[in-house]
Every structure is written in C-alpha cells, then in structure tokens.
Computed example of a mutant assay.
Amino acid sequence: MSGADVTYVFDAGYLRPSLISAWSVLKHRPADITLRFLVTEVIPALASAVERLRAAFPQAHIHVQLIDFDRTLAVGGHVSATALARLNLPQLLEAPTLYLDGDTMVRRDLGPLFAPDPDQRPIAAVRDPGILKALHQKAGHGWLPSRKSARHLRDLEKISHLVDAADYINSGVVLFDLPRIRALGLDTRMGDLRAAVALRQQYQLRFNDQNWLNVVFRGQIRHLAPEWNTLWGNRLTGRSPFPQSERAAFVASRDDPAVVHFTGRLRPWEIRHPIFHPKRRPWLAAYKALQAEAEASLRMA
C-alpha cells in the first residue's frame, strides 16, 4: 500500500483540535505517512507541540509550513476565513493529499483511501448527510423539512444550475489528487478564493469553500463510503426521512465510523462534561478520551 499524505490547514484558533486530530491519525498509522500542518499565521505554541509529536511517532514525516493568505476575505458565518486556504492546495503541494478539518477524530488507518482510482477523478469525498436528509424531506419522506434542512434546500435551489444536489459533498474530509487537478486545468479555478466568496455573497449562501468545491468539481467527484466522514456519528441517518436503502448504507458510519467529524458550533475540545450532552453519545466521550491522551503527551496547556 502506498504511503499516506495528510494535510491540515489552520490558524491559531484551530491549533488545539488540529493537534488532537493529528494524534488520532498517527495512532492508527504511525509510519509510511507524511503529515502536514499548513498555517496561515505564526503560531508560537506549534513548534514545541510538533517536536513532541515527532518524538511520539518517529517514523512519521511531519512538516510545518507557513503559507500566505488574505485574511481580510469576508466569509461570514461561524467558519474562519482560513477555511478558504485549502482551496490553494494545488499551488502549495505536489502529491495527492487527504485534507482533514481539525474537528475530526480518526479511528482507523487512512491508507485505503489512497488506492488508485481507475477513473482518475480529481477529488474524493463523502456526500453530505445533512443535504441528503433535506433532499429526502423534499421528496416527501418523513416530516416537513426542519429549519436547517429548509435552509439547505433554499441554498441548493439558488445554485441548482451550478451543482448536482444529489452528489453534494461535505468538505471536511477530501482526498485531493493534486496532479490530476492540475492536469485538468482546474487548479486556477479551485484557487480563486474571491470567486468562492462572491458566490456566497451573490446567492446569500451559508457555505463558502464547500459550495465552491461542489461547483468546481461538479460531475468529477468520487464518492467515499459514509464512514469516512461521519458527522457526529450520523445518528439521524437510521430513521426517517432516510429510506430503508439509505439507512442500510449508513450502518457502518453509525456503528464503527472511520472518521468522526464534529461539525457545527459545538466544539468538543471545549466541552468539560460530556455527560450533559446525551445526544452526542458515544463519540463525544471517545473524543474526550483521545483529547486527554493527546494533550498529556503533547503537554498542551
């Protein structure tokens, strides 16, 4: 199996979760891996943490790179402007890489994701279950759309000429075949950060980079199994409005996810008492155990 290449892109605000996530990656693949931290600002605490990470996993190749980034971009919402920096990956790196959001917890070896794609599609990612839920509700399954689902549907309707709603991916876990992206001439468009922001502003959308990736790579996305990007355990996929066939497809993601993605405003690394969040079981407790292990080893205050 070929080596894995994993990339995080963050600013100081996401230092702690990114280190915790990286720890989870290396626990399950301590060797034959290149792990990269691309940071959009100088983070004094990063250097010592990375040295301890290297000491804990001496067979891994761990790199830190400060990248140029226009932090004045008006992204809106609760997502940092730094999230847009991942769109510059074709200009920053050479080899295919798996981009991970810092709010992820990896539970198995990421190596299988790097198996060659016979169709040579430029990116691979998981369909967003929140979007799928909204589409099922629109189709008449279950109750009327929730407020969040209704917002998803409004946004998708506005850009229906630009994206395929049924193929819409979540951008928190994406395998970028960077050489293929460049060969297809999509690197320049992918890296047009101002166009990504303008899209959100023009249509008053919720997302920036996520919508942009779905626009740029429309019709060229390889879908990964749901367990590779499980939003808080995908617990809602086991009932209506998901039809029986879809519920079965999400079983592995609910029972034994490969990557748990803690999306939204609730930040698990800031929670002190998981017992007060019963709807977030069992993955919040698992994350807190991982956090304690990583922070003790990396001496994170």
Rank of each mutant, 00 (worst) to 15 (best):
D255V: 13
P118S: 05
D187S: 09
L186E: 12
I275H: 13
D155S: 07
I159L: 04
G264M: 02
A45K: 11
N229V: 08
G172N: 14
L298W: 04
A74I: 05
H273V: 15
T40D: 04
G233D: 05
S18W: 02
I169R: 08
G264V: 01
T40A: 13
F37E: 03
F10K: 04
H78W: 11
G77D: 07
Y168H: 13
F250H: 13
K27Q: 15
L135H: 01
V174N: 09
A115T: 11
V6A: 09
R281C: 05
A60T: 06
A289D: 08
L73G: 00
I67N: 04
T40W: 06
L186W: 07
L135Y: 00
S24R: 00
R189Q: 14
R54Q: 13
L84M: 08
A85T: 02
L87A: 02
S160L: 00
Y14S: 04
H223M: 11
L26R: 01
L231E: 15
A81F: 03
G13P: 05
L19V: 02
V197T: 05
D68R: 06
I131R: 02
F114N: 03
V9I: 14
Q59M: 11
R206V: 13
R107N: 15
R299A: 14
Q201A: 14
A22M: 01
Q201I: 05
D32A: 12
G233Y: 03
V126S: 03
P44Q: 02
R280Q: 15
I181R: 07
D255E: 15
R247L: 11
V42K: 10
L84N: 05
W212G: 03
I33V: 15
D209Y: 11
A134H: 01
F250W: 15
S21H: 00
H161Y: 05
I181L: 11
N170T: 10
A166P: 08
Q220G: 07
L84S: 02
R247S: 07
R71S: 12
I169C: 10
A139S: 10
I123E: 03
G185V: 11
A183Q: 15
Q204I: 11
H152M: 12
L38Y: 03
T237K: 04
Q201M: 04
T230M: 11
L38K: 05
F57L: 05
A252V: 11
H28W: 14
R52H: 10
P257F: 05
Y203R: 13
L144G: 09
V174P: 09
V50R: 07
A115N: 07
F114I: 05
T97I: 02
Q65H: 08
T34D: 10
V259P: 00
A195F: 03
H28P: 01
A249L: 13
I20S: 00
D192I: 02
P282E: 05
R254I: 10
L38V: 04
G172L: 12
D117F: 01
